[in-house]
Amino acid sequence: MQDVIRATGLVKHYGDVTALDGLDLSVPGGQVLALLGPNGAGKTTAVRILTTLLEPDEGSVEVAGVDVLADPREVRRRIGLSGQYAAVDEHLSGFENLDLIGRLYRMGRHRARERARELLERFDLVEAADRPVKTYSGGMRRRLDLAGALVATPTVLFLDEPTTGLDPRSRSDMWEVIRELVNGGTTLLLTTQYMEEADLLADDIVVIDHGRAIARGTADRLKQQVGGERIELIAEVATDIPVVHELLSRHAVDEVRVDDHRRMLTAAVTGGTVDLRKVLSDVENRGIALSDAGLRRPTLDDVFLTLTGRSTADPTTDDTPTDQPEPRQKETVR
């Protein structure tokens, strides 16, 4: 199928800092691509370039068949953008916000109002429609912001960290809404720091670090690459760590990682609960006590450790500033 989003060799510098370092992206029509990476990886910069908010220093971009650099206005007609902090007006009501956006899409007064009502209904905001947005919860704001991105029924949708800062409940609500959209055939590019989110929503994932793609593929392929689930064991006494290490490494795909401070051992496995049960019985047979044991899905941190050999929390990854000079956790749930 034809690519609806295609970016080639994107480079963007902010002074001495390289935010994007030759990033290529392509998303076929009706597909969902997740850009997965830690803070400062260049995700927001990429989205800003794709949505005409920023000009790259190098590279070419095409969205919905239009050259973004040559005809940004035409691109704006075809896209919807929802940012990582809700771009809605606090003093306006939900209805007024959507009505304003509709007018600015030049839909005409009547159609703008009608569309605002439709979207409020769809995003379960009818009751709050006439209240100023400053009385909304974090989740409601995000839903309104997403509704704002959909006013003109765009063919391509960009969601920049749609669930960052949301509580778990609002996050799963948001996922449901996004999944519905995707089922409706919208082409979507979303950025996220959560492996789980990318796994759940995206057809394809591009892992990005220091402004370049370090891995790409389907969620399954990526998981194969970084190993499936993780067994995590915490030894009750530190002296047992070497033995537990030895037992765990029999099942591990890769090497076993040890956190001495927390007495925690982690290993990627392929067999899931079967492996966990075996390890636990081995440990029990040796008479070793564990204070905790469990199976968990790989996180962004695991992906990073495997792909780059360093953790996302590693200070050396933080030498690039965040994509934008704004505080990350701007949205608090009120």
Partner: peptide, 17 residues
């Protein structure tokens, strides 16, 4: 300073509006 400006910029509205 606020996020609303990104919304305005991503719309096909007049740049002077």
């Amino acid at each position: 300073e606020k996020g609303i400006i990104d919304r305005f910029r991503s719309l096909p509205m007049s740049r002077s509006a």
